[in-house]
């Protein structure tokens, strides 16, 4: 199985983040939510492995202590 990577792995984090935000430019909240859903599904397919995806779902569900969920 492939372990979930939780250490830095993006080769150009600032470029990625800027592109991510730019992809939402001009979208309504509903359109943004739909874009995010499509993006998650595309990335999930890229990951492929069920165990990794399950671990990712668990990591995402775990909000930091004291933070609004």
């Amino acid at each position: 199985m492939a372990d979930l990577i939780l250490t830095p792995n993006l080769d150009r984090p600032d470029d990625f983040y800027a592109a991510l935000i730019a992809a939402h430019d001009g979208l309504s909240d509903d359109e943004s939510a739909a874009l995010n859903a499509r993006l998650i599904l595309i990335l999930a397919n890229q990951v492929g492995n069920t165990e990794t995806l399950t671990a990712a779902l668990q990591a995402a569900a775990k909000a930091p202590e004291g933070a609004a969920a």
Binding site: L6, T7, P8, L10, H24, D29, S32, P64
Partner: peptide, 19 residues
């Protein structure tokens, strides 16, 4: 709103995960 949501998601994740 979406930019704010991603920003806070990054902060929430950064607290727990180095990535």
């Amino acid at each position: 709103r979406v930019s704010h949501m991603f920003r806070n998601a990054v902060l929430d994740l950064a607290e727990q995960y180095e990535f």
